[in-house]
């Protein structure tokens, strides 16, 4: 845990952060609103006190109630991973600005997140499906997309309802959907 990084982040982005900075093991996590992503990322990338030059991972997360995009950054200045979570994207129309202006390599990862969660990255000029066929309509990694019956299930979790695949448009977000912990 890098306390100095936490202090620097608080000093720089204090008012933009949604909630406190969390630190565990070698990870530091900040949460920002989707609209703030470009500015925060540019600051983290450019400013000499941060210099997070490398975008290590970009992914989408469906918490069951909201969508998130999660960025993992690496810098020489800190021994920690910095996790930036763009929190609170609506599940009906998730939108977040793209980071391809900083990292061209995020393009495909954003395409993947779009393909799997339907998150629209504004500014990504090639936002089309990457894995699924072009005429596919569902977003498979959403929590209201259920696997067919014969898929793997946990022996410990007991048998859940019969899982089925259906399009998110007619999906009802009910108790069947696994919800993320609120922490």
């Amino acid at each position: 845990m890098d306390r100095a990084l936490k202090r620097r982040l608080e000093a720089r982005f204090g008012d933009r952060l949604l909630g406190p900075i969390r630190q565990r093991h070698d990870e530091t996590e900040i949460r920002v609103a989707p609209g703030d992503v470009p500015e925060v990322m540019r600051a983290l990338h450019d400013e000499p006190e941060f210099r997070f030059e490398a975008l290590m991972d970009l992914c989408g997360v469906d918490t069951g109630s909201v969508m998130q995009t999660v960025y993992h950054l690496w810098s020489e200045t800190t021994p920690d991973w910095l996790r930036v979570v763009a929190d609170g994207l609506s599940r009906d129309d998730p939108r977040v600005p793209s980071v391809t202006f900083l990292w061209k390599g995020a393009e495909w990862q954003e395409r993947e997140a779009y393909d799997m969660f339907g998150i629209a990255f504004e500014g990504n000029r090639d936002l089309r499906r990457i894995y699924m066929p072009p005429d596919y309509t569902s977003f498979p990694l959403r929590k209201d997309f259920f696997l067919p019956d014969d898929a793997a299930r946990s022996p410990g979790g007991g048998v859940r309802h019969i899982e089925q695949a259906h399009a998110p448009s007619n999906a009802t977000v009910d108790a069947q959907v696994r919800k993320a912990p609120t922490s």
């Binding site: 290590m56 991972d57 997360v61 999660v70 946990s154 410990g156 979790g157 696994r178 993320a180 912990p181």
Partner: peptide
């Protein structure tokens, strides 16, 4: 993790 025995989300990079 959401406290169950299955990962809630698992991103593989």
């Amino acid at each position: 993790s959401d406290g169950t025995d299955q990962p809630f989300r698992m991103r593989i990079h």
